[in-house]
């Protein structure tokens, strides 16, 4: 019996469908959610969501959020999420470089901007790492 899974970010539905297992990066560790999981609410950290349908796996990056599990339904409210296959690697690299450069000129950055930059750096690093790890595997 599959479990219905929805990954929703603020501006779109990233994924929707019946799956066999969802693996999410919870704040207290990575957890796999199988059908008939007990109701659960958890916050997410930066990481990878893995979804398996039949024998096919899909990977998504997620930049924090909340997951709700109720019986036959997993809802992931993501702060930013995308399928690894749709990440623009060039853009991610550029973003990381931009963030690194501005962080180095620490004097010029206001403390409140610094936090935002750190987050941007974290996001882009995550994207790049995800692409490197999961795209390769697929092409092999």
């Amino acid at each position: 019996m599959p479990i219905h899974c929805e990954i929703v970010s603020q501006d779109r539905i990233v994924f929707q469908g019946d799956v066999d297992i969802v693996v999410v990066p919870g704040v207290e560790g990575v957890m796999g959610i199988l059908p008939n999981h007990s109701p659960l609410l958890s916050t997410l950290q930066y990481g990878i969501i893995t979804i398996r349908q039949k024998n096919q796996e899909e990977y998504f990056t997620v930049a924090g959020g909340v997951v709700e599990v109720t019986g036959s339904q997993v809802t992931i409210l993501a702060n930013a999420a995308e399928n690894v296959d749709e990440i623009n690697i060039q853009r991610a690299e550029d973003a990381r470089q931009r963030a690194e450069i501005s962080l180095k000129e620490a004097g010029a950055v206001k403390p409140e901007d610094q936090a935002a930059l750190q987050l941007a750096l974290k996001r882009s690093t995550l994207r790049i790492a995800a692409v490197q790890r999961f795209r390769q595997r697929r092409t092999r």
Binding site: G26, E28, P39, L41, V66, T70
Partner: peptide
């Protein structure tokens, strides 16, 4: 049906 397990806790969520 809707008694949740919280991780880390209700307040944090």
């Amino acid at each position: 049906k809707f008694v949740f397990t919280y991780e880390p806790g209700q307040e944090e969520i």
